[in-house]
Lab assay of single mutants.
Amino acid sequence: GAYRMKIYDRDELRGQMSELTDDCISVQDRFHLTEIHSLNVLEGSWILYEMPNYRGRQYLLRPGEYRRFLDWGAPNAKVGSLRRVMD
């Protein structure tokens, strides 16, 4: 299947937008971000990790809009890595 997600540095799907279609071992290295404040999962399911290298707390992201970090259940906006959930 296809995988696509848009990430934003501000809440409510605002601010600088970056797009992912594959795994990202370090959000900071690739996008120069340490925080993601909202996101829109367009295709596929993903796991968001608090730390790089797929470590730390993890949150399942199904397709849909997440307008603030509380929407995916996190206590803050800190994001380290993102990985696709393969079928």
Rank of each mutant, 00 (worst) to 15 (best):
N76K: 11
G15P: 02
G73D: 14
E12W: 06
L33S: 09
T34R: 05
M17Q: 06
R83M: 06
L42V: 13
G64E: 04
H37V: 14
D71W: 08
S26T: 15
T21W: 12
M86K: 06
Q16E: 09
Q58H: 14
R30S: 10
M51I: 03
R4P: 00
I25Q: 13
N40E: 09
D22Q: 14
E43S: 08
G56F: 01
T34G: 05
Q58K: 06
R83W: 02
L61S: 01
L39G: 02
L39F: 05
V27T: 13
I7M: 10
G1M: 13
S81F: 00
T34K: 15
W72C: 02
G15N: 15
V41R: 01
F69K: 13
S18R: 10
W46N: 01
G64P: 00
Q16F: 13
V79L: 08
G64L: 02
C24Q: 15
P63D: 06
Q58F: 07
G73P: 00
E12P: 07
G15S: 15
Q58W: 07
A77V: 14
D23T: 03
F69I: 15
E19F: 05
A74E: 03
L70M: 13
R57A: 06
M17L: 12
Q16W: 08
M17S: 07
N76S: 12
R68Q: 10
S26D: 13
Y3F: 13
T34W: 04
D29T: 09
M5H: 00
R30T: 07
Q58R: 06
G44P: 00
L61W: 02
Y3R: 12
G56E: 00
G73E: 11
G15H: 12
W46M: 01
D22Y: 06
V41P: 01
L48C: 05
K6L: 10
G64S: 03
R55I: 04
N76V: 10
M17P: 08
W46F: 12
R55Y: 05
L39N: 04
R68F: 03
R84W: 03
G56K: 00
G15Q: 10
G73N: 04
D11N: 06
R84Q: 12
W46K: 02
A2W: 09
Y66S: 03
F69S: 10
C24H: 06
E50W: 00
F69R: 13
L60R: 12
P75Q: 09
L60D: 10
E19W: 12
Q28E: 10
I25S: 13
I25Y: 11
G1N: 14
D71M: 12
R67H: 06
L60W: 04
C24N: 06
D23L: 01
E65M: 13
E43Y: 04
L13A: 15
I36C: 07
L70C: 13
Q16T: 07
Q28T: 06
R14E: 09
A77H: 11
L20N: 15
E65S: 05
L13I: 15
S81K: 00
Y8G: 08
M5T: 14
N53H: 09
M86F: 15
M51P: 01
Q28D: 10
R84G: 04
L13P: 03
V79N: 09
A77G: 10
Y8P: 01
M5A: 15
T21A: 11
L61N: 03
E65R: 14
T34D: 06
D71Y: 05
Y59N: 02
G1F: 15
W46G: 00
I25R: 04
L42G: 15
W72H: 00
V79P: 02
V27N: 09
P52M: 05
Y54N: 02
S38L: 00
S26V: 14
L33Y: 06
L70A: 14
G15W: 02
P75T: 09
Y49K: 00
P63R: 07
Y66V: 00
R10H: 12
R83S: 11
Q16V: 08
Y49H: 01
G80A: 03
M86C: 08
Q28P: 11
E19D: 15
G80Y: 01
K78M: 09
M17D: 13
N53Q: 07
E50L: 02
H37F: 07
D22W: 09
E43P: 02
R67T: 06
E19G: 14
E12D: 07
S18Y: 12
G64H: 03
R55K: 13
H32Q: 07
I47G: 01
N40I: 06
R30E: 07
Q28C: 11
D29I: 04
M86G: 09
S38P: 02
S38R: 03
I36Q: 02
N53F: 03
D87C: 04
N53S: 07
R67M: 06
Y8E: 00
M5G: 01
F69T: 14
G44T: 00
I36R: 01
S45T: 06
P75C: 10
V27C: 11
G44Q: 02
R30P: 04
E12Q: 08
Q16N: 05
D87F: 15
N53G: 07
R14Y: 10
L48W: 05
N76D: 09
D11W: 09
R55M: 12
L39R: 00
D29C: 10
Q28A: 09
R14D: 10
S81A: 03
M17C: 13
M86P: 11
L70K: 15
V41L: 13
K78H: 04
L82T: 05
P75G: 07
M5V: 09
H37G: 07
